[in-house]
Design a protein around this nucleic acid. Sequence first.
DNA 1: CAGTGAGCGAGCTTCCGCTTGACTT
Length: 770
Amino acid sequence: MIKNLVIVESPAKAKTIERFLGSDFQVKSSYGHIRDLSEKELGIDIREGFTPRYVIPAEKKKVVTELKKLAGETEVVWLASDEDREGEAIAWHLTEILELDEARTQRIVFHEITKMAITEAIKNPRKIDQNLVQAQQARRVLDRLVGYELSPLLWKKVKPALSAGRVQSVAVRLVVERENEIRNFRVSSAFRITAKLLAIKDGQPMIIQAELPKRFSTRDEAYRFLEKCKQASFQIDNIETKPAKKSPAPPFTTSTLQQEASRKLGFSVANTMRVAQQLYEDGKITYMRTDSVNLSKFALAQAKEEVVKLFGKEYSKTRQFTTKLKGAQEAHEAIRPTFLENRVIEGDNSKKRLYDLIWKRTIASQMSDAQIEKTSVSISISTTSEKLIASGEVLVFDGFLKVYKESSDDDDQQEAEGILPALSVGEMLKLEEMSATERFTQQPARYTEASLVKKLEELGIGRPSTYAPVISTIQKRGYVVREDRPGYNREYQLLVLTKGEISEEIRNENTGFEKAKLFPTDIGSLVTDFLVTHFSNILDYNFTATVEEEFDEIAMGKRVWNEMIKTFYFPFHEQVENIQKTSKKVSGTRKLGVDPASGKNVYVKIGRFGPMVQIGETESDEKPRFAGVTRGLSIEDISLEQALELFKLPRPLGQFEEKEVIIGTGRFGPFIKLGSDYFSLPRSEDPYSITMERATELILELRDKKNAGILKDFSDPHGIKVIKGRWGPYIAADGKNYRIPKNTEIDTLTPEDCRKIINEQPPVKGKKRK
DNA sequence: CAGTGAGCGAGCTTCCGCTTGACTT
């Protein structure tokens, strides 16, 4: 019998720790929380002081049974869940469920997985901190109350199956408000003056790039300035040289890893986390869900050794970073390679690239500053008091830049500053060319998944373990879409002064191109409007920060958890009931104009199945006509013409194989129908203009593809087919799908076998997943 | 898995944070 049982949250962590502890210790994992409020009901006895009703979810039964058995057989149980609110609660739930008695239960914590940290922790056990547990309980109950009262309100007032919550609703609000800012943004332009000047160095001409700090708001002002410069002479009247330094960014947290992987590798937030999880399970990196920038002493020493070995002593600088974020719980280390001497790792490309990024960032964080010399040259113009400025930058010592440079979200804004030749005050320069280019003001940038995470983190909303799920939830609910949008052509004016002549031309540039940006949908905007109007307190960007302060007070024992909940809940609940009774269903109805064909009004609104256009009145005797608003269009800015266009479907094209061909659009987008067979129209095809010829081509092509997946078609009245699915073959009949029992010979399956399989099992029901 | 959008009513949907495999069509 083993004397000691240590319980941690993650199985990979358990494996590592087991190596550090002697054979007297057995280390197991709880796989996170083992109990939660039931999903099917509110799970809170409001009248009994908000007592939570916890249940063990089905998927946790097995691990709980195992832990309980082991706990009964050991002398001491060490609860080693994370040292934060959630971790303390996990420890408490474990004592309850495993029925651990206090005498043989110890609570221990460590922030890094090193032998020293763990043996040290074992020497300093404590008891469970009930205040911290209650703070977690308050957090849990508040989130449940908000989510499970607001969501059903949305089902009634907007559309079924919607959701709202403390975190996700604010995330959507950020995207919606940014889009509104962009919609209200008025572009203005100004003329920027740049010059190419010639200096002669050792008989060689050298070009110097300079810029006028001032901008001109009109073409005429810019023109007059160029006129003045025609006859001017240019002379250097001042040179300033200043040393500057750049320091490396701290090592990765979950949020900064997601941002850099997005900017440098083009990874989605979910992809980054999936790959990081694999690296963690392979033992290549430390834990990937963390808000800490701290590195262990072991890692600092190792980094120093590596830097000195690879680049020399002058490149090494040991730095201990501290987090500036409010609300950070710092239960883990920063994300770093477990062994920094592993410069590269084995594995697929994604793993290699993400590991490389983590390695570089970690190493760079322990390297010296880059030393830079910034030079600014002021150039006087004889005909005006304005001065041109030429700036240059010389990297005196590269330091950490040898390895890694952090990207920013607006990299394209900064123009690279070049190296200037040696110049002296009083030196005359010759004007080669001067241009006045029309430049436009930039609209606010749309969020990417990663920049939205960054914003949420700044607001203290959400946790490292939830950033990726939140980003995916708001897309799954249809509040937000991640899309590319093509840019458009914009004309700009360009004036060029060269050889004493000013020429003028209009040029084109492409602008507004968006890649993998977040756009709000109509539903997202409508729901946000509704929630902001009626629940401004919860949609407030500071709501989380405010309740977090109260949770902290509970954690410090200064406040009773259910009294805090009570103060929040009753006014909130009254508000929900009030809206329930008084508010009408919201649909965002907007009148677009009059349909020229029928003379009836045309409206756009959100219906039961999403955005739609309606011709005619709902209350009239004659039934109105409806059409769904298809992808890419929004009820906020659709035009009457675009709306009427939507009624051109379904469109009969003619006969093919003696069956009618119809182009239509449905729940899954545009399709071609041939008799009773449906074929989805690829995105590249336009349903409004597609020809019969192209349609038949597509039918033949798509039918082949469809047939390729059909292993057997028995052509019986129930349409029993064996189809090759993503996870192996399955049986389809009467529109339902059935699993094929293991060890079944697919080749010899008869219709009778299939019927037997169908009768023996219930149809596979889509299991709901978060 | 498909062209819907009345109204009724059944039964369903939903939160945030911890954590991974089991399982999906």
